[in-house]
Design a protein around this nucleic acid. Structure first.
Length: 209
DNA sequence: ATTCCTTTGAAGTAA
DNA sequence: TTACTTCAAAGGAAT
């Protein structure tokens, strides 16, 4: 989808100044012309990708727009569903202090920032629908078992695609939420006491904060 | 309405 | 440093 890719490039140019261009060069799917324009703040969007083969066609990983538009990471009600500007990024940095980091578009709905997806989670997100189309399994637990076996059957180069993408998402997550830590959501999910917790009866009600 | 199941990997806690 | 635990996604099943 060209619109999403354009959003990505605009986001990169606004959020990352020339000071972090070294990091960007570590990922081969970033558009070459974008890397050249990193030191310039203004950028036009007059070229259409379909008229001729541009750098964005080959260097932008096809899963990156999928990540940026993940409904979980960027809920429809949050400001991240809109194109991210430098001002919005600074607003995110301002609200991410030493305590928990939230998506917030209003004072009434706050959704916690979740962990970035690891390589296998990205693989599942992309391949789940294919297993569903095969029609053998319907439950997610069974599908996840299948995807776990297929993950181990992948070649090293096929897996590296998702490891690289996961590293890219961790970097993006770090830039978007500088104060965020996995500690923010650790131990806050309600679980059955019969699982592991033994002894106190209401130990996990203290997370109301 | 909420948790379980089930996978791998990242990151947390406790020893 | 090592071992163990939690949570990321998904959604039908179970509670």
């Amino acid at each position: 989808d060209h619109q999403k890719i354009h959003f990505l490039t605009t986001f990169e140019s606004d959020l990352f100044p020339s000071s972090v261009s070294v990091k960007l060069q570590a990922y081969d799917w970033w558009p070459a012309e974008q890397q050249q324009n990193l030191n310039t703040t203004s950028r036009g969007q007059n070229n259409t990708p379909q008229t001729q083969s541009t750098a964005a066609d080959t260097s932008v990983h096809p899963l990156v727009p999928l990540l940026l538009y993940s409904d979980r990471h960027f809920p429809s009600s949050s400001l991240y569903s809109q194109p991210i500007s430098a001002a919005a990024a600074q607003q995110v940095s301002a609200q991410s202090g030493q305590h928990a980091c939230y998506h917030s578009n209003s004072a009434f709905s706050r959704q916690p920032v979740k962990k970035p997806l690891n390589a296998f989670m990205l693989y599942m997100k992309e391949m789940r629908h294919k297993v569903l189309q095969e029609g053998q399994e319907r439950e997610s637990a069974a599908i996840n078992r299948i995807l776990g076996r297929r993950w181990h059957a992948l070649s090293h180069s096929e897996q590296s695609k998702y490891y690289d993408l996961a590293q890219k998402e961790r970097l993006l997550h770090m830039q978007l939420y500088p104060g965020w830590s996995a500690r923010d959501n650790y131990g806050k999910r309600k679980r059955k006491q019969s699982q592991q917790i033994s002894g106190s009866t209401s130990s996990w009600t203290l997370n109301a904060g």
